[in-house]
């Protein structure tokens, strides 16, 4: 299971650390930090917070947001992140995936994909961190998952935007379809609202992990209880 943590500015890093520690103690298997302060183009960003996270938590974590080059990636990894997640920059410059995989190994390269279902097609959207810039890329998710796998992605986080934030459950049909297209781990994102949504996504779509943010941040679901519930439902989890 993966946890999403979203934060906006440096003042809240202390809160982030506390939250990260709490999730890690509750049994999260991995944390994902969306560094939206790093998003604006061509801005030098202070990434030292990553070091403070690495100091505190003893489980793997991934950093997403603002990684556009080998240098960005190197900085994030040197600060102690285990993985980097790339979304929009990979769409604009797919060769970046090849370069990152070659340099750092496929195991730490995660590709985030924001998918929107429209006219019976799954379409890739970019810049979803900023609603005013979000746009359709012309790419079809079925093709893009294959391309990023071929280029050296080690893992894909598929965020199904139709489900995102509505807490009606993961998009099982879409996840199942994409899972059958690729060999690398697929992580479900978007739509978790209750315990059974997690059971359903693991049972029906064979994903390697499920990511959620809202239900944990708002304490609707406790990670330890969730994992016990999964185990009770015969889904293999670390307890």
């Amino acid at each position: 299971m993966v946890k999403g943590v979203q934060f906006r500015n440096h003042e809240v890093v202390g809160d982030i650390l506390q939250l990260a520690e709490r999730y890690s103690n509750e049994g999260a298997d991995e944390l994902v930090f969306y560094d939206i302060t790093a998003s604006p183009e061509d801005r030098t960003v202070d990434r030292s917070w990553i070091n403070r996270v690495a100091e505190k938590i003893n489980i793997p974590f991934c950093v997403a947001g603002g990684i556009r080059s080998i240098n960005d990636a190197e900085e994030v990894l040197n600060y102690g992140a285990d993985k980097i997640s790339i979304n929009t920059p990979a769409i604009h410059n797919p060769v970046l995936i090849d370069e990152l995989a070659k340099r750092f190994g496929t195991q730490c390269i995660v590709i985030g994909i924001d998918s929107y279902e429209d006219d019976d097609n799954y379409k890739v959207y970019s810049n979803t961190g900023d609603p005013s810039k979000t746009k359709e890329t012309g790419k079809i998710v079925n093709d893009w998952v294959n391309e990023v796998q071929e280029r050296g992605a080690g893992e894909i986080v598929l965020n199904c935007m139709n489900q995102d934030g509505v807490r009606n459950g993961y998009d099982i049909e879409q996840l199942k379809l994409m899972r059958s297209n690729i060999n690398i781990p697929l992580i479900a994102s978007g739509g978790a609202g209750d315990l059974d949504h997690f059971v359903d996504v693991f049972r029906a779509s064979d994903v390697s992990g499920a990511l959620a943010a809202t239900v944990f941040h708002k304490s609707i679901i406790n990670i330890d209880e969730l994992k016990k519930y999964l185990r009770k439902n015969e889904i293999e989890v670390r307890l």
Binding site: D29, G105, T106, G154, E155, N183, P185, S208, R238
Partner: peptide, 13 residues
């Protein structure tokens, strides 16, 4: 060896 249900690297818990 990379296989359908066993992606390489072996990564995770």
């Amino acid at each position: 060896k990379p296989e359908r249900d066993y992606p390489v690297p072996h990564m995770g818990w």
